[in-house]
Structures are given as C-alpha cells and as structure tokens.
C-alpha cells in the first residue's frame, strides 16, 4: 500500500465520518418531527431545511469555548477528541462492498468492538474531568452501563463470528445466508439492544438524561467540543447500525450485489439507524438499576442461548 493510497483511504473515511452522521442527524430531525406532527427544520438551505445541521455546526463553532476552573483541563479538553477518534477508527474497518473497505483487517470484528469501547472512556474522561457533580453522576452511570453492556454485546458478536467461522466482518458477510435471519435472531436482538445501550441512546440514555443529570458528562461542554460529542454520538449510531447490518442483515448481499452492493449496505444501515431513532421518539428512559437487571437477567442469558444454538448449528452442518 503506497503512501498516496493510505492518504486517499484516510480521506475517504474522514469524508464518510463527516457526512454520514450529519445525514443521520438531519434524518432524526425530520423523522422525529413527522412522528410528532411537526415539520422540523424547513428554512436552512432552502429545500426542507437540508442544511440545518451545517448551520448548527457554524453556530457551535462561533460559541465561546469554556473550560471550567474546577476542571482537569487537559483531560477535559481531550475527551471530545477521544470520543470522536473511537468511532473514526471503527469506521475504518466497516466494509461497504467486498472491496470497499478502508482497512481490511483479519480480525476486524474484534477491532471494531475494541475501538468503539474507547468512546465510553471519553465519557468517563469528560465526566470526571469536568469538576461538576452532574457530570460525575453521568460518568458513574455510563461506567456502570459499560460494564453490563459490553458482555452481551461481545457474546452476540461472538455468535456471528462462530456461525461464519471468521473474525473478519467481511468474512462474516461472505458466509452470510438468509437462514441467519431466523437462526441468529436472538443474537440480533441482543446486539441491537446492547448497541443502543452502548451508544447511550434512549431508552438507555440515563447517563445523559437531560431532565435528571442535565446531559451528564457533557454538562460543562460548550461550542465546538460539545458539537464533537454530538458528532461522535451520531457516528456511533452509524458504526453500530453498519455493524448490525453487516453481521445480521448480510451487508452488501442482495439482488445485483455485484454492482449495487454498497447501496444494499447503506440501505440496511439506514433501516437499522431508523429503528434506533424511532425508539427514541416512542419510549421513556429506564432507570439505571432496571437497565442492569435487564442486561444480566435477559440479555446475557439470551446471548448465551444464542451461542449454544450457533454452536449446535455449526456442528450439525460441519
């Protein structure tokens, strides 16, 4: 791989990272508005307010950058960057077609799970570095959430890896068969729920709960740093939806997938992301202890059951 190619691939990932979350954010604005009998943004950019998030970005960039006196300044400043880099790195290994992947790693599934976990570290850095009680409570909650949700998330992913006999996301998509939609259904449920919790999206958003701990770890952030947190949240939804689409929905598989593979992948990702947005409109948030109970008494047993089911299936067909 030449230096030029590396630069080109990096730029491509960066462009995806800047564009996809914005598209998703705009979609959330519009989907939410229409579900609530509103229109949503209609002015910015002219056509149905398509440029609303760009306008928001400009607004954020103009805001004063405040670092509280009580904050642990380097940690406080670094946290949004860490959060962003986590999903930026994860996006590198997401394949859109067999050949369209920025970095084709042999164990890309493990890699994606590992680097997306870094985002939680950023939340902890922000929460403990802010010198604010609300932020600290938010950080406590996200730490507790991380511990209980990484387990079912990884167990569910392990099931897909076992079924495909590969730790590479591309390999898993290659091995995918429509029967997986049934066979891997319990694992898929666990994966979707755990990914939502990992992203701290409703109904698992108590670490940021705006009516209780006032955005939790993000309480003290302003301007561009706050915008970076938001950007990484939506990038996280993109990464997790793409992961779900690749593992369970067969990624680029579909009619004419030779030419239209990336379209299928994007459509499936969008469908999963839509579900993640939809849940936010319709459900209130759980309490932290209810979430833990849900994770350990429902998700983990279900994921273990899926593992056993997958193992039986693999042995039977071998």
């Amino acid at each position: 791989m030449s230096v030029l190619e590396i630069v080109l691939r990096s730029v491509a990932v960066l462009v995806c990272f800047m564009v996809l979350p914005l598209v998703l954010g705009q979609a959330e604005h519009k989907v939410m508005a229409h579900m609530q009998g509103r229109l949503g943004p209609m002015k910015a950019g002219g056509f149905h307010g398509w440029a609303q998030l760009i306008a928001d970005g400009v607004k954020f960039a103009q805001k004063e950058d405040i670092v509280p006196r009580a904050a642990d300044k380097p940690v406080f400043r670094l946290a949004p960057a860490v959060s962003m880099f986590s999903y930026l790195l994860a996006l590198v290994a997401i394949p859109f077609t067999p050949s369209t992947v920025a970095g084709d790693l042999p164990a890309s599934l493990v890699y994606v799970l590992a680097v997306s976990g870094i985002a939680t570290v950023a939340t902890l850095m922000a929460g403990f570095g802010s010198g604010n009680k609300y932020a600290m409570l938010g950080a406590f909650r996200s730490a507790a959430q991380l511990v209980s949700y990484e387990v079912p998330l990884i167990l569910a992913c392990a099931s897909f890896a076992m079924a495909a006999g590969s730790l590479s996301i591309g390999g898993i998509v290659h091995a995918w068969h429509p029967i997986w939609l049934l066979w891997q259904l319990p694992g898929a449920i666990v994966l979707l729920i755990a990914a939502t919790a990992e992203l701290q999206r409703p109904p698992f958003d108590m670490p940021v709960a705006d009516s209780e701990v006032v955005m939790g770890a993000m309480t003290e952030y302003t301007g561009l740093r706050f915008a970076l947190f938001l950007l990484s949240e939506y990038a996280g939804i993109v990464v997790m939806s793409a992961l779900f689409a690749a593992l369970y929905l067969g990624g680029w598989n579909g009619p004419f997938d030779g030419a239209l593979g990336f379209v299928w992948m994007l459509l499936k990702t969008a469908a999963v992301a839509f579900v993640v947005l939809w849940v936010r409109m319709s459900w209130p948030r759980l309490r932290e202890d209810q979430l833990q109970r849900f994770a350990w008494f429902f998700l983990v047993p279900l994921a273990l059951f899926q593992l056993a089911l997958t193992a039986a299936g693999v042995i039977y067909t071998a």
Partner: peptide, 16 residues
C-alpha cells in the same frame, strides 16, 4: 410528565 422520564413525543400530542 413523560418528558421528564425521557419520552419526548407525548408533549406534542397533548399540545395538539
């Protein structure tokens, strides 16, 4: 009340 519990949509329904 649902808004405080994180459900954002009922607010718009009641306002209708």
């Amino acid at each position: 009340y649902p808004l405080e519990l994180g459900a954002i949509t009922p607010m718009f329904y009641v306002f209708r």
